[in-house]
């Protein structure tokens, strides 16, 4: 098993990990020849939220080399926090005393422990070279365990809508968070997107109009649902789902890296959020958040 690559874009990688690190302590990373997948699918997750993400190797790495007995794929369990800390010192920032020149990430074994080793070569402001190494302990998953990782099955979404800028959405959700644990999300095919809470003491409803309803070609290993869409959808019909407020707020942690976010609603079933990293046309990568519906009597 061999794995070695230079990280071309440590800042982006760091922001991606930042977006998922709050979700669960350990996440799964799978390196294949074309893609890197970051997966948070723990059962213990708040409200059953899962994140499946996929990025093109080219958009983050160069001089990428991978070899393994399992179809040249390596899947590992890694502490999200430790990974984020390692990447933080790779990414250039104003507070750092050195400029990063090169970052190499490789699989290594140190005192019988598999680690993902980050070697950072930098230069201080006076021109002295520094070398920083972070070793993050990992656990390589066996092929049989990898098999068990399955992306959640969802029916064909009833509606797709292009979300407004996430930081604006976040301001509002931050205000709603102390008021209710359940957030209702609704959208229709005429560009309406509405988030609301409904408690005994207050009802708050924020709605956007004239958003875009993109036509989605589902690129994933599309699940059996191959319904022919003959009849054009009723533009005024709204589809909604109730989700956990905390899960939704955690999804909004990805506001720093998102360029475009598309929300898909499977009526009263789940909410799927595609957070695109970089230009959508380039398809550098996408973080997919699955939020199951919360069952509430008032639904």
């Amino acid at each position: 098993m061999r794995f070695r690559t230079a990280i071309e874009n440590p800042t982006t990688f760091f922001k991606i990990v930042q977006a998922v690190e709050k979700l669960q302590k350990k996440c799964v990373i799978r390196f294949t020849e074309e893609n890197i997948h970051i997966i948070c699918a723990s059962e213990a997750n708040e409200g059953g939220m899962q994140v499946w993400s996929q990025f093109k190797i080219d958009s983050l790495f160069n001089e990428y080399r991978i070899q393994s007995n399992n179809n040249n794929e390596i899947t590992m369990n890694i502490s999200a926090e430790a990974l984020s800390a390692a990447l933080k010192s790779c990414a250039p920032s104003v507070s750092k005393t050195y400029d990063t020149e090169e970052v190499v990430m490789k699989l290594a074994k140190k005192s019988d422990q598999a680690v993902l080793s980050f070697e950072i070569v930098g230069k201080t402001s006076v021109g002295r070279r520094v070398r920083v190494t972070h070793d993050v302990r990992i656990e390589v998953l066996k092929a049989i365990d990898v098999e068990k990782l399955r992306e959640p099955m969802c029916p064909e979404p009833d509606i797709h809508v292009l979300l407004p800028q996430l930081y604006k959405l976040r301001t509002i959700v931050d205000k709603l968070k102390p008021m209710s644990e359940i957030l209702s999300i609704k959208a229709s095919n005429n560009g309406l997107f509405r988030i609301s809470i409904n408690t005994e003491s207050v009802k708050v409803e924020t709605e956007w109009r004239n958003l875009t309803n993109p036509k989605m070609a589902r690129e994933e290993s599309s699940q059996n649902a191959e319904e022919p869409q003959n009849s054009p959808p009723d533009p005024d019909q709204t589809f909604g789902v109730l989700v956990s407020m905390r899960s939704f707020a955690k999804f909004l942690n990805s506001h720093a890296i998102s360029t475009t976010t598309i929300a898909c609603i499977c009526n009263k079933h789940c909410l799927i959020l595609y957070v695109y990293i970089g230009d959508v046309a380039e398809a550098g990568g996408v973080l997919t958040f699955y939020l199951p519906a919360v069952i509430d009597d008032e639904a």
Binding site: V202, K203, E205, W208
Partner: peptide, 21 residues
């Protein structure tokens, strides 16, 4: 009846309706 607020930031942005008991 509740105190109803209709809140908006600008004409293009979102609007919020609040009903405070």
């Amino acid at each position: 009846s509740p105190l109803t607020l209709l809140i908006a930031e600008d004409s293009s942005g979102p609007t919020t309706t609040c009903e405070i008991s």
